[in-house]
């Protein structure tokens, strides 16, 4: 089973009031990468999710890149220290997280994204 199921994420996130509100006004791509070969793009226009699928080579203002092992650690029900958040995973475990203003601005959405990915993984 793939560590990220982007269609399951799209379905759950598209009905999630917290995620939808936290993404308000966002224009651009939120990119999720698993290792060097697996990339997904979540596309937004004025805060609305307009697409979710395999990534392309275009620019992404917000991105998260981690190995499959790192994603598994971050998406555990009770992650080990310090895999419990994207930021601590970046500083303490070398997960790659963009450092753009948009990344900081949309941290509430990124936190919720991780919760949704965790719920999906638990549901199987």
């Amino acid at each position: 089973m793939a560590v990220i199921n982007i269609q399951a994420f799209k379905e759950r996130a598209g009905k999630d009031p917290e995620f939808l509100r936290a993404m308000r006004y966002y224009d651009g791509v939120l990119r999720i990468s698993v290792g060097d070969t697996e990339t997904y793009d979540l596309k937004f226009h004025d805060g609305k999710m307009t697409g979710a699928g395999p990534g392309d080579a275009g620019p992404a203002t917000i991105f998260v890149k981690a190995t499959e092992e790192q994603w598994s650690a971050m998406l555990a029900e009770y992650p080990k220290p310090f895999y419990h958040s994207l930021q601590s995973s970046a500083v303490r475990h070398d997960v790659v997280l963009s450092g753009t203003d948009a990344t900081f601005a949309y941290l509430p959405a990124l936190n919720r994204m991780m919760q949704i990915l965790r719920m999906n993984r638990k549901a199987g």
Partner: peptide, 15 residues
């Protein structure tokens, strides 16, 4: 450029 809600969100790293 960043709403203070993000400061709150960032604290998840410590929790």
């Amino acid at each position: 450029n960043v709403n203070r809600a993000s400061t709150g969100a960032a604290m998840l790293l410590n929790i």
